[in-house]
Design a binder for these strands. Structure first.
Lengths: 226, 226
DNA sequence: GAGGGATTTGACCAAATGGTCAAGATACAA
DNA sequence: TTGTATCTTGACCATTTGGTCAAATCCCTC
């Protein structure tokens, strides 16, 4: 119903779990991520997740008490890593490098974990029934903190005056778009982020667009060795 | 299974339909848009759509032969209007005004038809099972044409050299993000595009970020009357 | 206002699916 | 080896849900 951490164990804590238990929980979570991200919560079936995890439906339900429990566990499992990059924005760092680094991290997340991106997108588009409380507390706090950082950079004259919130939204939107809409992108370009050359081209294009958008020189001036 | 135009009638052609027929088809399509955009294809139920449209499930199935037929009709119904703004990009116009106009159109689409945006996003995220052929033909042709326009602007030195494709993706991503992720945005800001002030603020933020990103002055220099 | 096609619906059906349960298989400690 | 807790599964159940059908009912024309 509400709150993502409501299963047996908080998340990937190995303690208090037998070898078999840990192995099977991981198999299930991997399978569930694939299924939920591909079909959404409603479209996913417990049977398919079990098959993908190589066990019977009954056995899966021995580890997770319900479909919703699997879903919540999957969500919790990816949420932390999915929101992590923002935390690395360093107030003391060079704004251009910090923002560029953040953008590239996000694009590489889209390249390496597109299912996580789609799962998250799906959840939010359905009204975030499970993670709304987290968005309203943890994420909100984090975003406000980082908005402060950007604000400080602006006040220090390091970048053009822009609304930090919309800057963050723009970075999220553009970077996640390449994962969530990869089918459309493939239909239009014949490639996606799994193509190394396309990945690099995307990183350059998005980074340069946004950094220039906030008035930062990009690519950085030639500084030889620094 | 494939191709969106496969129902009884091509789309909103009034011809050959009784008054009752037209009224009910519209009721159904409206209800279906709400339901499909909220729950996705799998999560939606024919019964709820019928209820929302004020008729029995049986009667709904008298007008559309299957759930998939309703879905396809809904998709076809919105697709045209959804992709329309891009067509207005005028090669002869001023690049800054043209791009700003396009961006604002898209944001206003997100504000006025968020369900359409979410329906489209859902369809594409599921792998575009119904509209992939359209993306690969009509949309691809349109996008290539407009990329050419932007390319010409670049060659004429009117804007910085950027990859037109990624520029278009960025515009799509940012503008649609405000509709598709409105729950998250509301969780973080307390507002969304249905708030006129927030809408305007968003238009300014996104437009200024992207236009500056491609090296165009924005807002435009004071030209008094032109 | 009668005839006939268009419209509407409740009853019903079959398949899919989440979840239960009791019995069997397995691993492991003593 | 053996007893016990853990693990695994097939059989089964209740509910949901997409779709059918025949019987009304409505609307319009002649």
């Amino acid at each position: 119903m509400a709150g993502v951490g409501g299963q047996t164990q908080s998340s990937s804590k190995t303690g208090g779990m037998s070898r078999i238990q840990e192995k099977n929980r991981n198999l299930i979570l991997d399978a569930a991520l694939g299924e939920f991200s591909k079909k959404g919560f409603s479209g996913a079936t417990v049977e398919r997740i079990a098959a993908e995890a190589g066990m019977s439906k009954s056995n899966l339900l021995y580890y997770f008490s319900s479909k919703e429990a699997i879903y919540n566990a999957t969500l919790a499992h990816i949420l932390e890593v999915w929101l992590a990059p923002l935390k690395t924005l360093d107030p003391a760092g060079d704004p251009a490098r910090e923002l560029a680094g953040y953008i590239c991290q996000k694009i590489e997340m889209s390249a390496n974990f597109p299912e996580a991106s789609r799962l998250f997108a799906n959840e939010v588009m359905q009204g975030a029934p499970q993670i709304l409380p987290i968005l309203e507390t943890d994420l909100k706090r984090l975003v406000q903190e980082k908005c402060g950082v950007i604000e400080d950079w602006i006040d220090a004259g390091k970048l053009r005056r822009v609304d930090p919130l919309h800057l963050i939204f723009t970075i999220w939107a553009t970077t996640q778009h390449y994962a969530d809409f990869s089918v459309q992108i493939r239909a239009l370009t014949g490639r996606d982020l799994s193509d190394a050359a396309f990945l690099q081209q995307t990183e350059e294009a998005v980074t340069s667009l946004i950094l220039n958008g906030v008035g930062l020189a990009w690519p950085p001036e030639e500084t030889e060795q620094e």
